[in-house]
Design a protein around this nucleic acid. Structure first.
Lengths: 147, 147
DNA sequence: CCTTCTGGCCGAAGAGCATTCGGCACCTCG
DNA sequence: CGAGGTGCCGAATGCTCTTCGGCCAGAAGG
């Protein structure tokens, strides 16, 4: 995992459709060598998958909110309960007064309210505190060249 | 944008490396027709880009935190100031007591503290409240088939 | 009703690319 | 010194992307 690998990762984050020839030229390697490095990055799990990034607004999910979920019990085994709600895009166990933080996308605020209702229905959940996003400045992946 | 487009999006989210032949077969189209649909989805901006998903832990960013940023001024034009910090992966203007919510990844809690210091240095920022993530249940993209 | 136009699909063909392989250079360790 | 391992190059082959002409169905308009 040297600076060449990091550069390859950064370029694949920007555009995973480019050819290995172009990729290799950008970092000073042949197409075969670039391919081999990328193959190993996948094998080691550094590259989890290559995916199409879809615009949420195009799918009708115009409302973004973060919800602090308070609980009266240990939530460490509740991942599946949160994953069962398709509108929940992220779920994290956090330190602090709440116990779980979730990221939610819905089409309308009415649907957001419905998600809150379903969150309440999860075992151990005793309260929620929603924060609605007014404008997103940016969302981006980790920078492999900056770490 | 019918159910075939949504199915194509869902499959491309899971694996953007598969061939158009496989993609077409999965939705009952020829390779050429599948390619044409995907091309238009890109053209319309529904597919923003195709990207390699990198494991943050592999890059040494093992600490994830959400930071509520309080401000004493209008922050609507401060996107660039937040984008200048590479550790800041998301920045949103929010409704509520704080005014900006940012997502931060660093290698250590010491570096997190340094990011907080740099956040304070942004014009108009009057306070921060960091929430450290103990365990991430999951992070996933929007589900095109569920909306 | 019939014509015309548009949009989407199929199937084929050519160009371009991914993937593999042998060979070579370099480094490390016995 | 020699053996093993690693990483790279350059070429070959097989597959894929990409484009194109032709076809069909449905809409629009006379």
């Amino acid at each position: 995992m040297d600076h060449i690998d990091r550069s390859l990762l950064a370029r694949l984050q920007q555009d995973a459709t480019q050819s290995y020839a172009a990729l290799g030229q950008a970092v000073g390697l042949s197409a075969g060598a670039a391919h081999e490095r990328v193959r190993k990055l996948r094998e080691r799990g550094v590259i989890r998958r290559t995916t199409a990034e879809v615009d949420p607004a195009a799918l009708g999910s115009g409302v973004l909110a973060y919800v602090m979920v308070e609980s009266s019990a240990w939530m460490g085994e509740s991942a599946d309960a949160f994953a069962a709600l398709p509108e929940v895009l992220e779920a994290h166990v956090i330190a602090g007064s709440a116990s779980v933080l979730v990221k939610v996308r819905t089409a309308t605020t009415e649907q957001l309210q419905d998600v809150l209702r379903r969150l309440y229905a999860i075992d151990g959940v005793s309260g929620t505190q929603a924060t609605v996003v007014l404008e997103t400045f940016f969302e981006r992946p980790v920078d492999p060249t900056a770490v």
